[in-house]
Simulated scan of single mutants.
Amino acid sequence: MLEGIAVGTSTVELAASLYLSRKGVEYRIGLMLRQFQVPNRVALVSRAHSIGMLTVGTWPPRVPKHFVVQTD
């Protein structure tokens, strides 16, 4: 989801690609905003980039595998 936010994907597009509802995506984005203590998506991407959570020098930005949590 963070990768999609970083490239400017809309909430509706994220929901469709992740098989979630629009409200589900908004909820998860809200959780990330609170966790990173930022006011908006731009600040979220900036904070994620500054702590190394998004790769440098690639487009689209990717989240390194050691930051990905697998849920089953």
Rank of each mutant, 00 (worst) to 15 (best):
M1W: 05
M1R: 08
M1Y: 10
E3C: 00
E3W: 02
G4K: 01
I5N: 08
I5S: 00
V7S: 04
V7A: 04
V7G: 04
G8Y: 02
G8N: 00
T9I: 07
T9C: 02
T9K: 11
S10V: 05
S10F: 03
T11G: 04
T11A: 04
V12K: 15
E13P: 02
E13Y: 01
L14V: 01
A16I: 08
A16G: 00
A16E: 12
S17M: 03
L18M: 15
L18P: 08
Y19W: 13
Y19A: 14
S21C: 00
S21T: 11
S21F: 07
S21M: 01
S21I: 01
R22V: 14
R22P: 07
R22W: 08
K23H: 12
K23M: 07
G24S: 10
G24L: 10
V25E: 07
E26F: 06
E26S: 14
Y27E: 03
Y27T: 06
R28C: 02
R28T: 01
R28Q: 02
I29T: 13
G30Q: 06
L31G: 14
M32R: 03
L33P: 10
L33N: 12
R34K: 15
R34T: 14
Q35H: 09
Q35L: 11
Q35M: 12
Q35W: 14
Q35Y: 15
F36K: 13
F36I: 12
F36D: 05
Q37W: 13
Q37A: 12
V38Y: 12
V38R: 11
P39N: 11
P39M: 12
P39L: 11
N40S: 13
N40W: 11
N40M: 11
R41T: 14
R41D: 10
R41E: 06
V42D: 11
V42G: 10
A43P: 12
L44C: 15
L44D: 09
V45F: 07
V45S: 07
V45G: 09
S46D: 14
S46R: 14
S46W: 03
R47W: 13
A48D: 02
A48K: 02
A48M: 10
A48Y: 05
H49P: 02
S50P: 00
S50D: 11
S50K: 11
I51V: 14
I51T: 08
L54M: 06
T55P: 02
V56Y: 02
V56N: 04
V56W: 04
G57K: 06
G57T: 13
G57S: 05
G57L: 11
T58A: 12
P60G: 05
P61Q: 04
P61V: 01
V63T: 10
P64F: 01
P64L: 06
K65A: 14
H66A: 06
H66M: 05
H66D: 06
F67R: 00
F67G: 02
V68S: 02
V68W: 05
V69I: 14
V69S: 00
V69P: 00
Q70A: 13
Q70F: 09
Q70M: 08
T71S: 13
T71L: 09
T71G: 05
D72W: 07
D72E: 05
D72L: 08
